[in-house]
Nucleic acid binder design. Structure first.
Length: 265
DNA sequence: ATGGTTGTTTAACAA
């Protein structure tokens, strides 16, 4: 059995529903995990997904901000929403179980504001608290043997996950303290970084380009903020990983592009 | 060193 799982920070699912339809039609993931849906569950555009065969839904949204959703052509079991980081009004996580007993977590980690100092910037403190809660959650005993974490983790951990390591060392998303928190989380289950499994450093990998560049592609000042991690027992099942850079050039795009992983179980 | 853009919701905030 093969299964394809995609993750995409869509930055408003209602505004970009036509781009979602285009992606589903052209790339045909079995499961799509969206972040920054920016919509309450009652207003979520489910019809478009149902029409394309994505009839299984796990949605955790809120009005205007944040929000995650997992849409699937295969059944979803044991839907769970966990509050990490202490802010109970933030919709940033939903988990499901896929056929093959894969526990799939869809995350939208807080961006963390502009100043990389927990004293001066409450948003940065919240980001680090969120990552600590994630670490504690995955460190608990009796976790499922097959787990996958996907989403916008809002951290580019490696030197070649950003366009300039030196120039971004004090920029939120690439600071050593964030990277250390992320590594502590990764080590709880010895998660495999799927993108780097297929494309090791020093090759650059980006999944996000700022809206503020005059020519995003020419400047190419990207960061790898979106990730797919898997527990080691899934490593031999990895077949492919695809980052759809092209999607950044679509009309009225998200600033993030989709990442897709394929397993042969 | 600075400023640059986009989306939600309606001037400010988040990213």
């Amino acid at each position: 059995m093969r299964i394809k799982i995609a993750t995409w920070n869509i930055n408003s699912v209602r505004l970009r529903i036509a781009l979602v339809e285009k992606y589903l039609t052209e790339y045909a993931p079995d499961v799509l995990c969206l972040q920054e849906t920016k919509v309450s569950d009652a207003e979520f555009p489910l019809k478009a997904f149902n029409a394309l065969g994505y009839k299984h839904h796990a949605i955790c949204g809120q009005k205007g901000y944040h929000g995650v959703a997992t849409l699937s052509r295969v059944p979803l079991d044991d839907i769970e929403r966990v509050n990490f980081g202490g802010k109970t009004d933030h919709a940033r996580h939903v988990a499901v179980t896929l056929p093959g007993d894969i526990r799939l977590h869809n995350f939208y980690v807080p961006a963390g504001g502009d100043i990389p100092d927990s004293e001066a910037n409450e948003k940065f403190a919240h980001k680090l608290a969120y990552l600590k809660d994630m670490r504690d959650y995955f460190a608990k005993p009796k976790r499922p043997s097959r787990e996958v974490i996907v989403g916008d983790l809002n951290i580019a951990p490696l030197e070649h996950d950003v366009w300039s390591h030196k120039q971004l060392l004090s920029v939120v998303s690439h600071t050593p303290i964030e990277v250390a928190h992320m590594e502590e989380l990764r080590r709880t289950r010895d998660f495999i970084d799927a993108a780097r499994h297929f494309t090791p450093e020093p090759e650059k990998i980006y999944t996000w380009w700022s809206y503020r560049a005059a020519d995003w592609s020419k400047a190419d000042k990207g960061r790898r903020l979106d990730h797919i991690w898997l527990t080691p027992d899934l490593k031999p099942k990895l077949k492919a990983l695809e980052i759809t850079r092209e999607a950044r050039g679509w009309t009225q795009p998200s600033d993030h592009v989709p990442t897709l992983v394929e397993f042969k179980l």
